[in-house]
Amino acid sequence: MCAVRDLTKTYPAVRGRRGTPGTPEVRATDGVRIDIRRGEIFGLLGPNGAGKTTLVRQLTGLMRPDRGSVEILGHDIVRHPERAARILAYLGQESTALDELTVSLAVETTGRLRGLDVRSARAERDAVLEELGLSALASRPLKKLSGGQRRLACFATALVGARPFLVLDEPTTGMDPVARRAVWGAVDRRRAEHATTVLLVTHNVIEAETVLDRVAVLDRGRVIACDTPSGLKEQVAGEVRLELVWRERAPLDVPEVAALRDRAVESGRRWSLRLAPEEARAAVAAVTGGAAFAALDDFTLATPSLEDVYLALGGSAGSVRGLVKT
């Protein structure tokens, strides 16, 4: 339904001006290959600067790739970028085009610009606002709403004038649980009734784990893994995560603790370790008994989550060591 092949985009190097250093050439997407199936919620996960937004901009016809192809529902988007607007609805991160409008007018105007006539634009507006629980806010300008409410209003504009493909760039940022449920409820209804496909860009790993059918992990412009959330988690299966929180500082005079230090990712009083189950058991025994226990504030032992996968795969640029067994 959406096939991306060898998609590459390089931002040219910027020469430094006086006082400011230049930036080198950046390959924002590098030979990206993705297949999104009809009716699925497909996620793009990755750290900041991984190329998620650049990829989405190329899929929505907002940016021309240097090479590669994008085909959505049989249409070549690289050759005909203007067709993207007639196939998909895009929810970007910015709402500046709508900020000064009331919720009601923002949704109605967007519907009309998606080709609806006045009457159906108003009917769809009322239905979508009702569905998302926004009716009470309909006459308030977006600017006056809280971040989560504004985001929900922008999401409403993406739903009006139904499209078979929704591209949502961090749709639930700043939302409370009620608003989040409204969003995923609305998405599920459209999937069940119209087999709507969703491409979701997200940072929120917990949300990704619950809503996504499949996820592609991006790092430095490349897809480094693509599978179901549980499939990805299998890649780090067999290890558990041990979090240790020390009262003041780690008791490095205890030899077992000193030995663990090399494998820990430290942030302040907190150590994060990925260990084989028997190693973890030994480590827990070491820190909960004897001299180390006095220095221990808290500890947790958990099976790997998608967050571990995310950090393990996408966090190569950071300080967190990889988890994936090769």
């Binding site: 016809g61 607007a85 895009y90 085009a97």
Partner: peptide, 13 residues
């Protein structure tokens, strides 16, 4: 500058 044009640019207008 703020990316607000994307809203219009992704509508078939």
């Amino acid at each position: 500058a703020s990316g607000g044009l994307d809203h219009y640019a992704t509508l078939p207008v």
